[in-house]
Design a protein around this nucleic acid. Structure first.
Length: 326
DNA sequence: GATCATGATTCCGA
DNA sequence: TCGGAATCATGATC
């Protein structure tokens, strides 16, 4: 029954018209539905049609053989009935045996056809074989998210869905991408530095605006806010202190508020820009402009299992930022 | 065709 | 179940 269903689903058995179209549609869906696969899909359909033809030919042959053999046995029994009495029940039993034998052969045929289809599918539709690079836009969106959430590059389910929608890929592809990105970034931070610079610079203006707005907002709400001497402008030469100020802003004045949450992610980017402007030297960086400050001593991401808004990304063991104000 | 980049899969541990 | 790590398989570039 399962074999029948599968063959039906694959378009091997069932009505001839449109045979394999469902499978071809599945193929299109599996490979992202891009039109550049149409040649391969037609190839797939051709092979499927070939399997279908062989299956039907063999099936017909078996049915014919079954009928012929049944007739032959019936004739033999008829001849034997001249010498000994043969009951209709015996004839029925013999026919039953023959049909069972042939149906088991048919089952084998179905099984091997299924196998052939599975092999065909794996060969043509295996995602690994059909790997396609994401579009430039998709990669940019993913990278922007990654580098702007560097302190905690673990998007929530909602964020993954949002990214998937934006990039026209699946949620699992987003998960794969972040999995690969995290591990490759961690393995070779130096290699990704340039990329990080690019995306950090891209979002720097936004970050600056967000932080400036936050600072202004903070000043409006509490005029006696400490560490707010620069009035919203960035004091790059002393960026270590400035970052502490931002930490203070984020942690003290805006903790728990929506603004604070937004600023937090922007801060990651901004910190990077600060590093790039030469105002921040990293003792652990080994000459690296973009220091792996978000990785803890064990090589894991800081706060990997806790929301980034709860703990400061630069706090904790191994942080070289924590006491620069002294 | 060698090499690198990258998306997907698998295995394993927490 | 999720994420890290290793690996595979394919695409892109030279």
């Amino acid at each position: 029954m399962r074999l029948d269903n599968m063959l039906l689903a694959e378009g091997v058995s069932g009505p001839e018209k449109g045979g394999g179209s469902a499978a071809a549609a599945a193929a299109a869906a599996a490979s992202g539905g891009s039109s550049d696969n149409s040649i391969e899909h037609s190839d797939y359909r051709a092979k499927l049609t070939q399997i279908r033809q062989i299956y039907h030919t063999e099936l017909e042959k078996y049915e014919q053989a079954c009928n012929e053999f049944t007739t032959h046995v019936m004739n033999l029994l008829r001849e034997q009935s001249r010498t000994r009495p043969i009951s209709p029940k015996e004839i029925e039993r013999m026919v039953g045996i023959i049909h069972r034998k042939f149906s088991s052969i048919q089952m084998q045929l179905k099984q091997s056809t299924c196998e052939a289809v599975m092999i065909l599918r794996s060969r043509f539709l295996d995602a690994r074989r059909k790997r396609r690079n994401f579009s430039k836009q998709a990669t940019e969106i993913l990278n922007e998210y990654f580098y702007s959430h560097l302190s905690n590059p673990y998007p929530s389910e909602e964020a993954k869905e949002e990214l998937a929608k934006k990039c026209s890929i699946t949620v699992s592809q987003v998960s794969n991408w972040f999995g690969n990105k995290r591990i490759r970034y961690k393995k070779n931070i130096g290699k990704f530095q340039e990329e990080a610079n690019l995306y950090a610079a891209k979002t720097a203006v936004t970050a600056a605006h967000a932080v400036a707005a936050a600072v202004q907002n903070n000043q409006t709400n509490s005029p006696t806010t400490p560490n707010s001497g620069s009035s919203g402008s960035f004091n790059l030469p002393n960026s270590g202190d400035m970052f502490m100020n931002m930490q203070s802003l984020n942690g003290d004045s805006y903790q728990g508020s929506q603004v604070g949450a937004n600023v937090q992610s922007q801060v990651d980017t901004l910190r990077h820009v600060i590093n790039q402007t030469g105002g921040y030297s990293d003792a652990l960086g080994g000459g690296s402009l973009y220091s792996p400050h978000n990785l803890n001593a064990n090589g894991g991401w800081q706060d990997a299992t806790t929301p980034s808004s709860v703990t400061s990304p630069t706090e904790g063991p191994g942080s070289v930022h924590s006491d620069t104000s002294n």
